[in-house]
Computed example of a mutant assay.
Amino acid sequence: MNKSNDNEEILCPCLVAQRLMQGKWAIIIMYYLSNGPIRFNELQRQMPKMTHATLSNQLKQLESEGLIIRTEYAQIPPKVEYKLSDIGKEFQPVLDSINLWGQKYIEYMKCK
């Protein structure tokens, strides 16, 4: 892609949002974090069929994008929590819309 196309992509809000939500698990992780801070193992228990490495990589990606915050507590055993950042919290209306649409789609498919 040439430089001008890169700049156009940066200016397109839909492409920016799509890039930030890349990864199979990004939206569901954001959904679980929207309920408040959660520890890694607790989050992993809620995720369907996700390996430790996959969750770790997805959390690192979301953290590097500024959507979540990782807090490590100096204690034994170590405690690490994840929560939505302020800009991550701004994604809540989108999560609510996805959830509502998903419920409608499930009902739609029951009637087919």
Score class of each variant (00 low, 15 high):
residue 48 P to I: 07
residue 95 L to K: 10
residue 64 S to Q: 11
residue 16 V to D: 02
residue 19 R to M: 09
residue 34 S to L: 09
residue 85 S to I: 06
residue 99 N to V: 09
residue 36 G to P: 09
residue 98 I to Y: 04
residue 39 R to F: 01
residue 15 L to R: 15
residue 65 E to H: 13
residue 16 V to K: 08
residue 88 G to V: 07
residue 16 V to L: 10
residue 24 K to A: 12
residue 56 S to W: 03
residue 2 N to A: 08
residue 64 S to W: 00
residue 59 L to T: 03
residue 12 C to N: 15
residue 49 K to T: 11
residue 2 N to S: 10
residue 92 Q to L: 15
residue 64 S to Y: 01
residue 96 D to L: 08
residue 31 Y to I: 12
residue 72 E to L: 13
residue 16 V to G: 02
residue 3 K to V: 11
residue 47 M to N: 06
residue 48 P to F: 02
residue 74 A to G: 09
residue 65 E to N: 13
residue 83 K to N: 08
residue 73 Y to S: 12
residue 1 M to N: 10
residue 65 E to G: 00
residue 102 G to F: 01
residue 7 N to Y: 07
residue 57 N to H: 05
residue 51 T to Q: 05
residue 84 L to C: 06
residue 71 T to Q: 13
residue 100 L to W: 03
residue 89 K to G: 10
residue 57 N to F: 00
residue 42 E to K: 14
residue 85 S to M: 08
residue 86 D to H: 06
residue 109 M to W: 01
residue 49 K to S: 14
residue 9 E to Q: 14
residue 42 E to Q: 13
residue 16 V to S: 05
residue 8 E to C: 11
residue 67 L to S: 03
residue 81 E to P: 00
residue 54 T to W: 01
residue 43 L to F: 02
residue 28 I to T: 15
residue 77 P to V: 08
residue 87 I to L: 11
residue 79 K to F: 04
residue 102 G to A: 07
residue 102 G to I: 01
residue 95 L to C: 09
residue 77 P to H: 04
residue 112 K to N: 08
residue 51 T to P: 06
residue 105 Y to G: 00
residue 8 E to D: 14
residue 107 E to C: 14
residue 97 S to V: 03
residue 27 I to P: 05
residue 94 V to T: 14
residue 110 K to N: 09
residue 87 I to H: 05
